[in-house]
């Protein structure tokens, strides 16, 4: 439907329109190319640094082409057992937390999409309330700790299970599905759960894919929950490892007199770790992108 509209806009109706029609794609392409460049350049620099020698980076010779090409840094980082343990944790946390988040968000959103539900306003209110107010750091910590969740994946998965923004997008999507469909299914004898599982969810692949992507990227990148609730190095996700590597090196010099800043992490080690950390989640994008675009559009337009 969207493509049809675009075509009708771009069809020239007058000379002015015709010129606009020629100018727009050019301006568009130039602008977008600049955006792409701005986005890709820092990443290209990091990749180039990861393959370069430390001395070359320090003397400012590296921009987007590696200098002093070597793979030893990759070997060094990949031989670090802690890095892989933390990497595995990231995968486990991301998968678990995303599954939990998807189940809970989908159920909640589906319920909220039913206009005849009693107390619907209150349920939405509870969700939206948490968007604006939080308990604060220490009360949250005390709660999670006294529930015995500390040092387990649940400390990461449960408190972040429902993202209210995602919930509202999903709710809007479910509301946009024709009610007749569900009525017909009910007439044919399906229960509420049957309707959800056999009719609604198969029709919602786009929004589900989008939400999976949203959640998994968030969990993959997040470090704060793990930082708060994990007390052991072998429980940290790779983001905490990475942050310590980069922020730790930066703070060491700013403290000035701190005498344990003796060995600063080399710039190429930081670059290699960054590349290895972002690689998997970047590789997911091309596969989900098809659903992603339509999913976001559906939520936005019908909401």
């Amino acid at each position: 439907m969207v493509t049809v509209r675009t075509r009708s806009w771009s069809r020239p109706r007058s000379i002015a329109d015709a010129e606009r029609g020629r100018v727009f794609p050019v301006v568009n392409a130039v602008l977008l190319s600049i955006v792409v460049l701005v986005t890709v350049y820092p990443f290209a620099t990091i990749v180039a640094r990861s393959f370069s020698g430390e001395g070359e980076i320090r003397s400012g010779q590296v921009s987007v082409i590696p200098r002093g090409f070597n793979l030893t840094t990759y070997k060094l980082v990949m031989s670090d057992a802690t890095f892989w343990v933390n990497y595995r944790n990231t995968v486990v946390y991301t998968v678990t937390a995303t599954v939990v988040a998807m189940v809970l968000t989908t159920c909640y959103a589906y319920v909220l999409s039913k206009k005849n539900l009693k107390g619907r306003g209150a349920l939405i209110g509870i969700a939206v309330f948490t968007m604006f107010f939080t308990g604060g750091l220490i009360p949250n910590y005390v709660l999670v700790t006294s529930l015995g969740l500390k040092n387990s994946v649940w400390a990461i998965a449960l408190p972040n299970a429902i993202n209210v923004f995602n919930l509202l997008v999903m709710k809007a999507f479910f509301e946009s599905l024709p009610g007749d469909l569900e009525e017909a299914a009910a007439v044919d004898g399906l229960s509420t759960y049957g309707i959800l599982l056999r009719i609604v969810l198969p029709l919602s692949k786009a929004v589900i894919a989008t939400m999976v992507l949203f959640y998994s990227v968030t969990f993959w990148n997040s470090w704060f929950s793990a930082f708060l609730y994990m007390d052991r190095v072998d429980l940290f996700p790779v983001t905490v490892y990475l942050r310590n590597l980069i922020a730790g090196a930066a703070t060491a010099t700013s403290v000035g007199s701190s005498k344990d800043s003796l060995a600063q992490t080399a710039a190429n080690i930081q670059a290699v770790t960054m590349v290895l950390t972002v690689l998997p989640i970047m590789l997911v994008y091309p596969f989900i992108q098809r659903y992603f675009v339509s999913g976001v559009m559906l939520g936005a337009v019908k909401g």
Partner: peptide, 22 residues
């Protein structure tokens, strides 16, 4: 027995733990 905290954010976690009595 260690409670391991990344050096990058050591101060923050220390305040949190002392504040929470933990």
């Amino acid at each position: 027995t260690t409670v391991a905290v990344p050096r990058s954010d050591y101060e923050q976690k220390r305040s949190l733990l002392i504040g929470a009595g933990d």
